[in-house]
Design a protein around this nucleic acid. Structure first.
Length: 286
DNA sequence: GCTGTCAAGTTGGTGG
DNA sequence: CCACCAACTTGACAGC
């Protein structure tokens, strides 16, 4: 039975789905049930470059098992033919054939949520039970989500590695600067007894206890000013003591820098969290 | 025999 | 109450 005929029988309109949707709605032939190669006339919606689908096609062609979804209910006739539940106890699970999977994949790409009407159309076109279509879409969504999580994990892992190496570099630089400070202190203390006279006394009394620190602070002003909004934005205390400032030396945080600095890392995570974690869109934590 | 994949079953939550 | 969904589990099967 052709789809048009089926839709005519059910009063369905072919305008409900995109034109190419109809192209997919050819019921599987007996040959396809035996896992013959698919017809060469592929609709533009066939994701021939889709890695998953290729893999699946490979797998399906490798595996000799075939499945005609209507088979378990073939004894059913009339309106019961496409009832939502025709599961029989003791039936063995069988895989969908290549054409069925291909059509379902294409439909999944059109929309991963299955409207009741589309479910019925697919069921009729593919010779499957509507329940099977629904289950396939459920499982497909689950597979998609798993893959997406793997992708997201990879992105976060790369960001983490980048952040860690940057942190290591900053730590090393920090150590180096602290060593410089200690060296400067040592030099100053060694030279102080010699320079003590009337001219230097006044300047000494007014200056900071650690002149090298002042120089370093000034040189870091720009970086600290950039860093400050970042750390306040992520809820961490902004250090204004010298000790705190020395913990973030030469931090090259600039707006618009493409590489993964602290700011970008947190901004990226923040941006992506909406996609990663569904509840960030739907739930408000008060 | 072990493992991976997939279809289908089960369970608990949610919205109409 | 029902239908739907996500998450988890189970059972069947293929490949190694």
């Amino acid at each position: 039975m052709s789809l048009d005929h089926q839709m005519a029988c059910n009063g369905m309109s072919s305008s409900f789905f995109p034109p190419n949707f109809i192209l997919q709605m050819q019921p599987p032939t007996e040959n396809e049930h035996q896992h013959q190669p698919p017809p060469s006339t592929l609709s533009p919606f066939l994701p021939t470059n889709n890695q998953d689908l290729r893999g699946m096609a490979t797998m399906l062609s490798k595996r000799s098992m075939s499945f005609c979804g209507r088979e378990p209910c073939e004894e059913m006739t009339g309106d019961d033919e496409f009832s939502d539940d025709c599961s029989h106890a003791g039936e063995k699970k069988r895989r969908l054939n290549m054409e069925q999977v291909r059509t379902l994949e294409k439909n999944f790409e059109l929309g991963n949520k299955l409207e009741p009407e589309r479910k019925m159309q697919l069921a009729r076109a593919l010779g499957l039970q509507p329940r099977q279509i629904a289950i396939w879409f459920q499982n497909r969504r689950a597979r998609w989500k798993t893959k997406q999580l793997e992708k997201d994990f990879g992105v976060l892992k790369r960001q983490f590695e980048s952040l860690r190496s940057e942190n290591d570099a900053l730590q090393a630089h920090n150590k180096k600067l602290q060593a410089e400070i200690l060296a400067l202190r040592g030099t100053r203390e060694a030279s102080e007894p010699i320079n003590l006279n009337k001219e230097t006394e006044g300047s000494c009394s007014n200056r900071s206890e650690n002149s090298s620190d002042i120089k370093l602070d000034i040189s870091r002003t720009s970086a600290i000013q950039h860093a400050r909004p970042l750390f306040s934005a992520i809820g961490r205390p902004v250090g204004n003591s010298r000790t705190h400032e020395l913990n973030f030396p030469s931090m090259k945080i600039e707006h618009g820098t493409p590489d993964d600095n602290f700011c970008n890392i947190f901004c990226n995570i923040d941006d992506q969290s909406a996609a990663f974690w569904p509840w960030s869109e739907h739930h408000n934590f008060h």
